[in-house]
Amino acid sequence: MMTVPNEPKIRLEHVGKMFDSFVALDDLSLDIRPGEFLAIVGPSGSGKTTVLNMLAGLDRQSSGTILLDGKPIAGPGPDRGVMFQDYALFPWQTVRGNVGFGLTHGPAGAGLDRAAREARVARVIDLVNLGGAEERYPHQLSGGMRQRVALGRLIANEPEVLLMDEPLAALDAQTRLVLQDEILRIWRQDQPAAERRTVVFITHGIDEAVYLADRVVVLGSRPGRLKAIVDVDLPRPRNEATRATAAFADLSRSIWELIRDEAIRATVE
């Protein structure tokens, strides 16, 4: 992208969020590098989704600043694509219509003629393995296919930053593994870092975070706050063999140690 190296793509400075008198997030400072795959994990109540909504511009922080390429975030914009937890697909649009929605009706398609837009939609549908399902409506799709549509809609707009809120939470374990690899492929993990987009990936799956991310941000709960940032120095490209390594297991375990007590408390409350 057009960013100066070493400048963060996104910078959060002492960001806090209150809902009435409830503190959802307390004093979070964090730099997100361009081309980085950043995962955020934490128990429920740690403000993960709040962080993502603020990055998307759907929520405003109560204190602190959030900078995108050095400029404060004022609202939602096509430079940051969001994949919502429950996908938020348009039920009246087919797979093709959903994937192409931003291109057809939003600024992402400006400067593209109809043929170019259609070509890109077709390419994206191919990329997320939805060939043959183009004319189906969301309610006619399985959970995994809906998730692919949401992913396709996200990348078709080619945003510089991809924000994903527990995108795989609703899927069964097997589909989740397959789609993790697909997300890595679309992020271009086999390309040099300069070719990649910036991803912020919210999850409650520690294994998932370790497998996907360059760094894992661990949040604590009540109030949500930064607990640790864990560097994941596993080599790329990662694949099934990665999960079997001792380093993978060690990282997962150390992150689990960080949030175990709160996670258990969260299930009891």
Binding site: A56, G75, G77, F90, F101
Partner: peptide, 8 residues
């Protein structure tokens, strides 16, 4: 929200 993030 989804349409807003796509600039619609």
């Amino acid at each position: 929200a989804a349409s807003a993030t796509m600039g619609v």
